[in-house]
Design a protein around this nucleic acid. Sequence first.
DNA 1: AGTAAGAGTTGTATAAGCCAACTATCTGTT
DNA 2: AACAGATAGTTGGCTTATACAACTCTTACT
Lengths: 144, 144
Amino acid sequence: MPHRDQSVETIQREMTAFARRARATAARTHPELSLVSFTLLSHLEDRGGCRATDLAAHYLLDKSTVSRQVAALERLDLVERRVDPDDHRVQVLHLTERGVATLAQVAATRRTAFEERLTGWNEADLSRFAAYLLRYNEAAERLS
Amino acid sequence: MPHRDQSVETIQREMTAFARRARATAARTHPELSLVSFTLLSHLEDRGGCRATDLAAHYLLDKSTVSRQVAALERLDLVERRVDPDDHRVQVLHLTERGVATLAQVAATRRTAFEERLTGWNEADLSRFAAYLLRYNEAAERLS
DNA sequence: AGTAAGAGTTGTATAAGCCAACTATCTGTT
DNA sequence: AACAGATAGTTGGCTTATACAACTCTTACT
């Protein structure tokens, strides 16, 4: 097998292995906020609020799934909805104060976990790894 | 924010984004074999057969979950069980002929998808990316 | 006005997962 | 030899995540 194919094979296997474990790990370390909820909140923070439809498109989820997830996050007082004054169909979602705080706390724990796994890496490797992941995900997004 | 933290942050975000999408993508492209089933079959192929308990440990799944997954794969005639002659508690799982064929087919489609996303990468970058992922996952496994 | 499109919700079904309780087998100690 | 404890796996019961389809409400276009 040529070098190239072998690398592709490894990348495939390792990305898959990571994906497979991510949810279980997230559930174990953050029973209060599932991986999905966490990413939804992160996205809201990133964008400074967005619509449910945007979340669905970005995470390849059905809009009904997002609707229920958002409802749950609202019940937990992590997210609030503001009807768009220019278009009464849309509800712009925003983090509440509690949402911001909870996200920050979970993000910190997660960051610690990642830092542990990245102990001993030098800065050049880290930044190259980060760049590769960005490049890969951009392609994945374009092609999906 | 120092360079290092920024890289860790990016790695965390991008790995998470990938994990978040992996299941949806897998479900879309392979309705016949979920991401979990696929990884279980792959593991069986890799090891040339193993116990349900090993699968559970490796993928951080409850043994009851694995039991049901395996039962489903058996119903589909993708996996067969052979009671260990030395220990009648143990059922060693093996791919059936159909299992091997199905796995090969799905793996090929997945590989194509990965190759598409990795178009334009040179060999050095690919092999470095693969190495980073391996290194990362090894650490993750050690620390879990 | 009237139709088409978009945003979101709700009903229904399925799958995946966990925990706890159980059976069957094996191992080690007395 | 016998019993206690550990291990492999199954099953019952429950929760959650997800998809699809049908629906309402609002906006946009003609």
